Amino acid sequence: MKRILAFAPLVLFVGLLAVLGYYNFHKKPQSELRAMVGKSVPDLSLVDLQDGTQTELKGLVTASGKPVLVNFFASWCAPCISENPQLMALKARGVTIIGIAWKDEPQNTLKFLAQHDNPFSRTLADPDGRMALAFGNSGVPETYIIAPDGTITDKITGPIVPATLDEVYAKVSGKSLPQ
């Protein structure tokens, strides 16, 4: 009987490890903060990298008169490079995309856009991350679908990949992607 009691702590420890291991392998792999979905675009102004003017994002969105994509990216972001062909495909189909360069140097952003094609109708700089913080970003790339009235209708965490291109196009345009 004493031998069995001597192994009790080891059995309890292994049981605890099994429970924690089960939880670790069965939890949701990524939580997506969607607190801003259903809310209005933050009223913040950023510098437009094309002309250097202070520009209010909400004004750009509402002036378009149609849903737009707002894409947070950075020149140092490898997934942003892989996402670029999908953004170019959406632009070619008439989707308005506004880029926000997150915590990036303006000259690096402009060089990045020159090297990898520019899918953005406007590119704004967010060097201190104020706009990203207001949106609740967790990193780059992150993309938001915004209605013409300035309401955020959806959030896409991570890069837009070829497998999700049809879905994103349908959400932003209300149409399916031509085959």
Rank of each mutant, 00 (worst) to 15 (best):
M1F: 09
K2G: 04
R3A: 14
I4D: 10
P9V: 06
L12E: 05
V14M: 09
G15Y: 10
L16W: 08
L16I: 14
V19F: 09
L20G: 05
Y23Q: 13
Y23D: 08
N24F: 11
F25P: 00
F25M: 13
H26T: 13
K28V: 12
K28T: 15
S40H: 08
P42N: 07
L44N: 04
S45T: 15
L49I: 07
G52A: 07
T55K: 10
E56L: 02
K58E: 10
T62K: 11
S64K: 15
A74H: 11
S75Y: 08
S75L: 03
W76E: 07
P79Y: 14
P79V: 12
N84S: 09
M88K: 13
L90E: 01
R93D: 01
R93A: 00
G94V: 08
V95M: 01
V95L: 01
I97A: 06
A101V: 04
E105I: 08
L110F: 10
K111T: 11
Q115Y: 07
Q115P: 01
H116R: 10
D117C: 00
N118T: 10
S121P: 00
R122C: 01
A125F: 01
M131A: 13
L133H: 08
F135Q: 01
F135D: 00
G136Y: 12
G136L: 12
V140D: 10
I145M: 12
P148W: 04
P148H: 03
G150S: 11
D154R: 04
I160E: 00
I160A: 04
V161S: 08
P162L: 14
P162V: 12
A163N: 08
L165S: 07
Y169P: 03
A170T: 05
V172Q: 08
V172H: 07
S173W: 04
G174F: 03
G174L: 02
L177K: 10
L177R: 06
Q179I: 03
